[in-house]
Design a protein around this nucleic acid. Structure first.
Lengths: 193, 193
DNA sequence: ACGAAACTAGGACAATTGTCCTAACTCTTT
DNA sequence: AAAGAGTTAGGACAATTGTCCTAGTTTCGT
């Protein structure tokens, strides 16, 4: 038998991947069960409803995002380098981005369309990144209110880049977009100094 | 009985709205039938498969997009004004954008995730806008290769703005994003002249 | 006015959906 | 070794899915 909680974690991890790759609506209990190697009916023991799985997946994504943002804090020496790490994730995950889009944006959009109860929790992930970017811009010497606007601009660009990457699947264009982002960033920080 | 083709048009119009508001996967034959006021089984006469409806919806969106782009051509006096008309659609349709996102981007993303056969046709709608924007930038005196890059940038921004608008439902921010876009546009065209 | 074509309602069909139950199994604790 | 908690497989359940058929009704070209 599996260690306590381990099966639950595997279910959430499988659901996380499927929700990203197929969308929440297109991923059934049967899909997740098959991926984990469990019987479908057995799910009721771990999760009473599909919404409960979605909730757990969002929790997982929130904690993974926090972990990633914390890691970037000491991987990037300057605020500028840290923001570059943020946008570079589009390159690192380019294969998945071009196939499925941005995991944050696509989940948020899908739940918004359905007016799902979990939609605000999905938007929380956005807020996590926004606050982090805001802090980086402020650390780079940008005034608070302008820092928030720049954080939003950075997030907007990342979402636009990911959406077009998923539509056109053009890696050259994706890299060009990220380069352009970096150019914009340096220009902004230069004029802020 | 309805005029020839009229019922078919009503089906496509209803599917168009539902696909936008709920997503393709979440919209069933029953949903569309209820919206049109027809019996579910009767659909087979008009559309053999769900994919056929999707195809017709994409055709409708392509022709509506072409019509809109042609209208903007003589509504805007200068290329600059025409590009502004493009981004202003985010304001005009703000209620729907904040509720369901961009119809072009969200459809494209959903179909990309499912690796749907119709995904390239959905991307065609993007290409329509891209080509149109490209032509406007060239008409404004921008060099051809740079015009294409600017068209892509404009499209990317619009997608990013729409995604964040759907997530945060913040009209003030949406208007600010569009203003910022217009500022960027004027700056670009000023330096190109 | 007549025959062909187009359209419609109603339901059948197997497959799949989310949910839920029961009986058995496997650990851990004592 | 025995008990209890936790975990599992397998399937039941009603509802819904996309697809498809039949039997009528309405419209249109002639």
């Amino acid at each position: 038998m599996a260690r306590q909680g381990e099966t639950r974690d595997r279910i959430v991890a499988a659901a996380d991947a499927l929700f990203y790759e197929q969308g929440v609506g297109a991923s059934s209990f049967a899909d997740i069960a098959a991926k984990v190697g469990l019987s479908r009916g057995n799910f009721y023991h771990h999760f009473q409803t599909k919404d409960a799985i979605l909730d757990a997946v969002i929790d997982l994504r929130l904690s993974k995002a926090r972990e990633m943002l914390a890691r970037w804090l000491h991987e990037g020496e300057t605020p500028r380098d840290r923001i570059v790490l943020f946008v570079q994730i589009l390159i690192t995950n380019r294969a998945k981005i071009m196939a499925f889009g941005c995991p944050v944006g696509t989940l948020s959009t899908e739940l918004a369309k359905l007016d799902h109860v979990a939609a605000p929790r999905a938007t929380e992930i956005f807020t996590l990144f926004l606050d982090w970017l805001d802090a980086q811009f402020q650390a780079a010497g940008v005034a608070p209110d302008r820092a928030r606007a720049l954080a939003h601009h950075a997030m907007m660009r990342a979402q636009g880049i990911a959406t077009l990457a998923a539509a056109f699947k053009d890696e050259t264009q994706l890299r060009q977009d990220v380069d352009e982002f970096t150019g914009w960033l340096d220009e902004i920080l230069r004029s802020a100094a």
